[in-house]
Every structure is written in C-alpha cells, then in structure tokens.
Write a protein that binds this DNA or RNA. Structure first.
Lengths: 224, 224
DNA sequence: TTACCCAAGATTGTATACAATTATTGTACA
DNA sequence: TGTACAATAATTGTATACAATCTTGGGTAA
C-alpha cells in the first residue's frame, strides 16, 4: 500500500469521525495494520499534522485533532473572512463542469435530506462547498479553505447537528449556486457571508457523538 | 544538531534568499553539511513544504520555492483578506509587552531607513507585521498569516524593492501602531487595508536580485 | 498514608542499508 | 547529423535496527 493511499484512508477516517477526536495513532500499530514500515507512516502523520487533522506531541505521539468550542470559534472566524471571497471569485471563474457538479450535488443534498440521511447529506454539502472553493482559481486560498472546510466538517461530525434547519440550509446553498451560475459575484459574496454564521449556529456543542472503528475496519471501509 | 535547529537555519536561509529560489536541496548533501542522517533532513523538508517554502517533486527532489508574479498576486489577495482583520483583533487583544515590542521595531525601522540599510529594514518590518499578527489571539489566523508574511518577505528579497517609498511605508506602520495602541480596531483595520496594496506596489517584478551562499556559509551565518 | 524515586515498558527519534525511480550520458544505427 | 536506446549515475523511497525519551507502576522511606 502506497503512502498516498494510506494518507487518504487515514484522512477520510478522521474526517468522518470514525477515528474519534483524541484517539492516539501509534506508528507501529499503523505500520502493521497497513503492512508497511514506520517510515511512510511517519510521513503521513506529519502531513496530517500540517493540515491540523492530527496533533503531534514530541516524544509522545500523534493524536486525532479534538476541536474545542473555542477553536470552532476561531475556525469560523477565518472561514467568514475567506469563503465569501472564494464564492465571489467562483462566480467569475467557475467552469461549466464545475457548475454542473454543483447542481448535481445540490440535487443529491435535497434527496438525502428528504430520505432522512443527514450524515450522508453532510458529506454532499462538504463536496458542494469544496467545489465552489476549487473554482476560485487562487491556489493559496484553495489550500486554506480546504483545511477550514475539513475542520468544519469534523465539527459537524463530532458535535450534534441534528437540530439543524436543513431546509433553510438547502435554500442558502441553492441561492449561492444561482448567484455563481448567473456570474453575480457580489451576490454570491453576500449570501455566502450570511451562510457562514448560520452553519455555526447549527452546531450543538453540548452534545458529542461517539462512534469508533478499529483500524482494520477503517482500512476495509475506505478501501476504494 | 537537532531537527528544530536545522529547520530554523534552512528556513531563515530561504527566507532571506541566501538560498535563491529554484535551488535544489539534496538530502544527502544537507545531511552531510549538518552532520546528521537523511531522516531528520527529510522531516525538515516536509515541514518546509507545508509552509510553501520548498516544493517537492516526487522522486526528483526538493527545490526552494520560486514565486512568480502571478503567485504574488494570489498571496496579496489572501493577505488583503486576512491581515486587516488581524490588525483589528490585535487592537482588542495586544498585550503591553507586544505594544512595546512594536514601538521598538518601528524605532529600529526608522533608524535603519535613515542609515540606508533597506535590507535590514525589511527584516524589522517583517517582525513588526509578525508581532501584530501574533497579537490577534486566533491560532489559525496566526498560522495562515505567518505563512503569508513569509512568502511576502521572500517576494521582497527576491524581487527588487529599491524604488519603494520608505517614508510613506513607515508612516503607515506608525498609523497602524497608533490605532492598535489606542484600541481603535476599526481604524487599525482600515489603515492595514490600505497598507497591503501599497506594499505590493513597492515590488518591481522586472528585476530579480541574485545573491547565493554555499550550505557551509549558511550554517555559519545562521549559527546563532 | 503519602511523597519520592527507580526501574521497566512503551513509544518516538535517528542512523544506516538497500530498493526503486529518474535523469544523464554515451553509443550504435539510420 | 540526429535519434533511439541502453547503461550508468544520482537521487529519493522504504525497511530495519538501535538510541533516546517519556509514562507508569511498584516499592521504600518519612
């Protein structure tokens, strides 16, 4: 198994909270589980560290990032600064392929919401935001927002969002998409700007969810 | 020599363009120069990669980051989004120690400018901006702006800034400091917002500077 | 009982050897 | 002369062994 693949598996596992925040990641155990030596594992952990998905304590080990409500505040503060501008730029630069991808994802979001599958809807919503970000054509802005979106998604999977106002959320996504499709950058900026606080309000920090999988289960689940 | 120290030496060398953009960093050469094995060198190179100071091409090697005018555009775009807000937050949260550090640095900037030492003035100005950023109390915002400030500084040392309007630049720094000192967040935001474009305009992309040092010289220079 | 210290276990940090990949150079052939 | 190809050199990627560091448990003395 190559380093890139190991990275993606661990990343997705953390991302979907199958490795719950706080879990220690021991190099030897990971190496054994993936059938490689510790060397590529260390490289992957470093990489995850610089994306804030794991925290590395010197001579202690690596732990899955565990965001506090305070850190959530910081994350959304930066998201508020960056994402509206990314939406504006997306309105100027989005390709037809990206626009149709957004449309498909919105359709899926609606269906999953109606089918009562909020967790899978969250993944689709993440993809939707990611597509907008990738359309902005600014590599640094993309990199920062990819990280911010990942951390936000961890918040959504770690804390409870079952009381979220899904219809309202969907309406906002649709409005952002319409603004981008009609190349109305200022409108995309404004709606995205409103959307950020409403996402933060959907999170109930008083309730944590706690699923957890073994490393073997994780490798099987994210094999594709 | 420890990994942390090696990291700082390489970082500063890239930072001050003593290792010119584009230079290949060969693991074995670095390991020999620092008197360690390739293992910690690889870790350092990964770390520098995630700060965008080096670019790693798989199976090819690591190269000092070489910013194009286009990338400069992207860097300053993001800087425009983040730094004014950091200045506002600094006005709310800066400690007395941080305020006096800013004041000292401004004094040094003025002296270096009058003594005709523009390169050393650039380093002091970087420290000044860094101090403001660190005062904003938002870890993620700090991390992003530290990277942005580093990349900006590389632009200043790589391209020519000898035609910059130093007195005007100093006045703007002073005005930002005064706004922060008097806890006027909105004013700090506004002046910082004006300051970003004027920094970009100081860069003459048509002229590149080209000093270069050997790895041995670099280790000696950054030994302290 | 509690505080302290020491030793054993667990885990990360580093060095080195070897494998895999890529670039380069030289050579043969059209 | 130019191009294709093969051999060689240079460099990164990986595995493994060993060193250093930190945590933890038990035992001893105050």
């Amino acid at each position: 198994m190559g380093e890139e693949r190991i990275y993606q598996i661990l990343r997705n596992a953390i991302f979907n909270a199958d490795l719950p925040p706080g879990t220690q990641l021991v190099e030897t155990s990971l190496a054994e589980a993936f059938g490689v030596s510790r060397t590529p594992i260390r490289a992957v952990l470093q990489r995850l560290k610089y994306e804030s998905l794991v925290q590395i304590v010197p001579n202690r080990g690596a732990f899955v990032y565990c965001p506090s409500p305070d850190e959530a505040e910081h994350i959304f503060k930066v998201r508020q600064l960056l994402e509206p501008e990314a939406a504006r730029l997306a309105a100027y630069h989005a390709t037809d392929v990206q626009l149709s991808k957004m449309e498909t994802l919105l359709q899926q979001e609606k269906e999953l919401y109606l089918q009562g599958e909020p967790v899978r809807a969250l993944e689709v919503i993440h993809e939707f935001h990611l597509t907008i970000v990738e359309a902005c054509q600014n590599p640094i802005l993309i990199r920062y927002l990819q990280e911010i979106l990942s951390l936000s998604h961890i918040l959504f999977t770690f804390y409870d969002v079952s009381d979220a106002d899904h219809p309202h959320s969907y309406e906002e996504h649709l409005a952002i998409f319409e603004a981008i499709r009609t190349r109305d950058g200022d409108r995309a900026y404004d709606i995205a700007s409103q959307h950020v606080p409403s996402m933060k309000n959907d999170i109930d920090f008083s309730r944590k969810l706690n699923r957890s999988l073994s490393m073997e289960q994780i490798i099987i689940r994210y094999a594709d």
